[in-house]
Design a protein around this nucleic acid. Sequence first.
DNA 1: AATATTAATCGTAATATTGCAATATATAAA
DNA 2: TTTATATATTGCAATATTACGATTAATATT
Lengths: 109, 109
Amino acid sequence: MGLTKTEIFTDVQNEIATLAKAFAHPARVAILHHLFKTNSCICGDLVEEIGLAQATISQHLKELKTLGLIKGSIEGTSVCYCIDQDKWSEMKHVLNVFFNQDITSNDCC
Amino acid sequence: MGLTKTEIFTDVQNEIATLAKAFAHPARVAILHHLFKTNSCICGDLVEEIGLAQATISQHLKELKTLGLIKGSIEGTSVCYCIDQDKWSEMKHVLNVFFNQDITSNDCC
DNA sequence: AATATTAATCGTAATATTGCAATATATAAA
DNA sequence: TTTATATATTGCAATATTACGATTAATATT
């Protein structure tokens, strides 16, 4: 099928999955890495930096933008992208709550 | 294509993407939620708990097991699954290093 | 206005993922 | 040994994702 049955899961479960999907492709991880490293707004450099076609990078940027993790502002003919710090913090919080479930659990097998 | 070009990314980038994929589907998040909540080893209850077919749950369990995040031990006819605490901690560390890149960066647009 | 530059979008091909019925396997119980 | 129970595997069908060339759109430059 390939169709996730989102309706049978909780909102939190769906949110975690949606956020995780952002990092589930190395190209998007690389884009975020680069945006952090340069600490400035990058645009077409990403195409050069990462070895993928412009259309592909643009598509990955769109996914990250749709999620709200990055934002872009037009500067002349180019677009300046950067991390959305607020959304990034929010994402970290949601995922950390999930990741830190283990603090009270024990091994059992 | 649908074929990720893993060779053009760093090992860390690929590792982050691979780990994130584990959480990129709500069914796997639900499985992990349940394994934590019961704090004991669950097997076929997951099929009942989550509303997916046995074959589907089994497939998701396999993915989590392949990644090493969970482990299963045979107990009679059933299989007892639980979180692999060591691998879980390792995963948290890798992802947190990635998530905490933001502490030194500023907004720029 | 004409041209160059940059990024988004469209269309398409190929691979991946999700889900399930059916079947296989393996152990427990009778 | 037969039967029941539980899980894994196989074989699809359908949808999603990845990637890219070509095109479009929008602004800058000349």
